[in-house]
Amino acid sequence: MIVAEPKPLAEVSELIGEARKILVVGCGGCVTVCLAGGEKETGILAASLRMLRKKEGKTLETLEVTLTRQCDPEYVQLLDKYVTEDVEGIVSLACGVGVQFLAERFNKWVVPALNTKFAGGAVEHGVWEERCGLCGECILHQTGGICPIIRCSKSLLNGPCGGSQGGKCEVNPDLPCAWQLIYDRLKALGKLDLLLEIRPPKDWSKARDGGPRKVVREDVRM
């Protein structure tokens, strides 16, 4: 999932400026799972903004809606009835994708309430870790299911660097060296010979280096 975390309240408050009525939109997708932008967090943010405004002796009207997903026009269009003339701004608690989808559909001031961090997962309750670098061409079958692109601090593809000491990365003593993990894993699987294969350089044009990407499935287009 996409993992995000809330922006500081003061920052969101500044972003909405003097708006008197705002629409606060949560997302039922990834950010609900990572406890950053679901229905509950939407309620907390709206209440906090109202209280901040009340403290200044002013009022703020908030409408709260949580969509199934904000990264899908099918759900975003459900907001049409809430985006009335008097709504002066929209606060999105989705990842950067959701914010852009709202901004594309509505001719309103749309602001993000979250900082989108990475593609990752929950390793325990309340702890999320990055796991995928979204490089566009998966190589996990070559590395025992451990991604060197995102888990190696240098994204090395040909083994550890000199900063790998005692199985740890020089960047942080708590961070395991991805290549140590890969070696240990392949050894346990009896597949160390995978590391001896000669491979061409990775085609980074399939990653962000090739500009914004697009996936098209002709069979499902309307």
Binding site: G43, I44, M51
Partner: peptide, 11 residues
């Protein structure tokens, strides 16, 4: 108790 309930009391 939930954050929303606690905030709600203050609000």
């Amino acid at each position: 108790v939930d954050v929303r309930v606690l905030l709600g009391a203050f609000e």
